[in-house]
């Protein structure tokens, strides 16, 4: 009896581990393949197409992409856009999130309503009007134009996220500080901000990831190489040099790096972020 029980339990445990392993393999395989092709010499690409690892590896694709293509420029542009967006959004959202967490005010319902409405309609609806408006004030083909648009798109969800971080800090702490002799602003700066830093970092990470990935508005608003972000540049490259797989995938791996770094930064906060911005990807 006990033997069959433990055998059954062992089988269940084994099945569980194998299932987890299967998920890990499926999750990682496409990324592994990206990496594999990016280090495969072009001459082996067709002869060893389906092998798990090439008989010979090379950094030549990376070297080419970094030295002879516009990708460093695209990378820099994407970095500027994503970092500025993330910084501005986090600051703006911290203000509104703090107000929503700590004050009862008449306009609060309207604020929540406004933020929710923006999460409900398809953003593709805005592509045409935003293009016309921005081109009339000269903000197409400009990184500032992209930052402006991305900031607006990410503020609503970031406000809810920051609010949840402020909510998790007891009000007592601020009150204790005010009784200890601090003004509300000092209590905010000396007590609340240090405690919300991890939350702000998480918000920064979420917004950075979102801005780094944005494709459609970048395609619409940017047509010049100078101002191209990574996705625009990569798609342009694909349509122009569609056969240079090694270089494309090397560029792809480069685009992946910042996203993965920020993923590690915000991993702990994924649940909070996804529930705050449930509508967001």
């Amino acid at each position: 009896m006990t033997v069959t029980m433990s055998r059954k339990r062992f089988a269940a445990t084994l099945a569980h581990r194998l299932a987890v392993l299967a998920f890990i393999v499926v999750a990682l395989f496409p990324l592994f393949w990206l990496l594999k092709v990016s280090v495969t010499p072009t001459k082996l690409l067709y002869s060893e197409g389906v092998r798990m690892w090439p008989s010979e590896t090379t950094w030549a694709h990376y070297a080419f992409v970094i030295e002879n293509s516009d990708f460093p420029l695209f990378f820099r542009n994407s970095l500027i856009v994503s970092l500025s967006t993330a910084l501005i959004v986090t600051l703006v959202a911290a203000g509104a999130g703090y107000a929503m967490s700590r004050f009862a005010f008449r306009g609060k319902m309207w604020l929540v309503g406004l933020l929710l409405v923006t999460q409900m309609f398809p953003l593709v609806m805005l592509i045409a009007p935003i293009f016309k408006i921005l081109s009339s004030i000269g903000l197409t083909n400009s990184l500032s134009g992209l930052v402006l648009v991305y900031t607006a798109f990410n503020v609503p969800f970031a406000v809810f996220l920051m609010q949840s971080f402020f909510d998790s800090i007891p009000k007592d702490l601020e009150e204790a500080a005010m009784i200890d002799g601090a003004t509300r602003f000092m209590a905010f700066r000396q007590i609340i901000v240090p405690l919300t830093l991890p939350g702000m970092a998480a918000t920064l990470g979420f917004v950075f990831t979102a801005a780094w990935s944005e494709l459609l508005f970048a395609l619409m608003l940017i047509s010049k190489t100078d101002a191209s972000t990574f996705p625009v540049g990569l798609l342009g490259f694909v349509s122009k040099f569609g056969v240079d797989f090694g270089q494309m995938m090397a560029a792809g791996v480069l685009a992946l790096i910042p996203a993965v770094l920020f993923f590690l930064l915000i991993q702990r906060f994924l649940v909070k972020g996804l529930t705050a911005g449930a509508v967001k990807g």
Partner: peptide, 30 residues
């Protein structure tokens, strides 16, 4: 395990599109 299986979420959507397009391509994909 959790970090690894959640990693695809962080991959930019354009990149996952390209990546899978390549995986489906008989020239470079398995």
């Amino acid at each position: 395990a959790q970090a690894l299986v959640f990693l695809p979420w962080a991959v930019p959507s354009f990149l996952s599109g390209l990546d899978w397009a390549w995986l489906f391509n008989p020239v470079v994909g398995p």
